[in-house]
Design a protein around this nucleic acid. Structure first.
Lengths: 150, 150
DNA sequence: AATGTTATTGCATCATTAGGCAATAATCAC
DNA sequence: GTGATTATTGCCTAATGATGCAATAACATT
């Protein structure tokens, strides 16, 4: 409730107008904070509450939410795009396999080391920062049988 | 030339078969190593060399090349997807603005600090690792006028 | 409460990306 | 070289995502 109101205030301050579709999507994200949601699910959910919503509405709102730091998009190989609530989170990071799309949350130690290292970086907001590490999980490791890659 | 042959050998060892379209795409990437290329350009280039190439061919080859660590995809807000040659590179990283899509190469100091920190991480290949930092550039900074975000 | 401004939506349309299937062609084993 | 295996392509179709425009609705101001 409180979070919801805060969020609305923030979004309005950024020039957004609160419409039924935005209200519903925001509530959905607040209720599913820890999940990674595919856009199909968002559309289905919205359709349940508003009949004949156009798919464009979803795409345009998603885009705005991303630009304002409300949600984050992850494009996972073999899986597709998923969206995740990130508003107010300082940072988060993931390891994503370029081959199979498998995703791991990074460990805390690295998190803190990088956070310290980031103090040097300017022209980039430290709030709401996402770090994505694209590599290869052990199952897909490409360097294993290769004499070319180090 | 040498690089080209090495690459072919590697790809074959991974089960790929060398076809005209793959040859042309690979040569293109070798000739444009430092660039970030949109898929339209790849398609136009391929079309010049093979008449009536199907779009599907590009997409499927791109996907394979990514899976094998030959190229890397960057999905930039407001800009779109671009592809970059990364084969054999140990690591690279970028700062990408979630709002305007502006992209900066990260600085070297952070690069090394993170590289050290990564020694702890297991189940992830250190070769061919991409680090993407998604935040907000100073121009788009969302936290500037907000009392909610830290 | 009425009004003016403008973000938002729906609609139509187009561009991009993905998947199934049969024909083709690259590679391997002999 | 010949044949067998199977990755790849093209084609067709479907799903996903983007864009321009006019109508609508949210919001600030009065």
């Amino acid at each position: 409730m409180k979070k919801h109101a805060e969020l609305i205030t923030y979004l309005k301050s950024k020039g957004l107008r609160m419409t039924p579709s935005k209200e519903i999507l925001i509530q959905f994200f607040l209720d599913n904070k820890s999940r990674h949601v595919p856009i199909k699910e968002l559309y289905d959910y919205l359709s349940k509450h508003i009949e004949d919503v156009d798919r464009t509405t979803i795409y345009r709102n998603i885009e705005k939410f991303i630009s304002l730091g409300l949600i984050q998009e992850l494009d996972l190989p073999k899986v597709g795009k998923v969206y995740q609530y990130v508003f107010g989170k300082k940072m988060h990071h993931y390891y994503i396999c370029k081959s199979c799309g498998k995703m791991n949350k990074g460990n805390a130690e690295l998190f803190e080391k990088v956070e310290k290292a980031l103090k040097d970086i300017h022209d980039f907001s430290k709030a709401n920062l996402s770090m994505l590490f694209y590599g290869f999980c052990s199952k897909c490791d490409i360097s294993a049988e290769s004499e070319i890659l180090p």
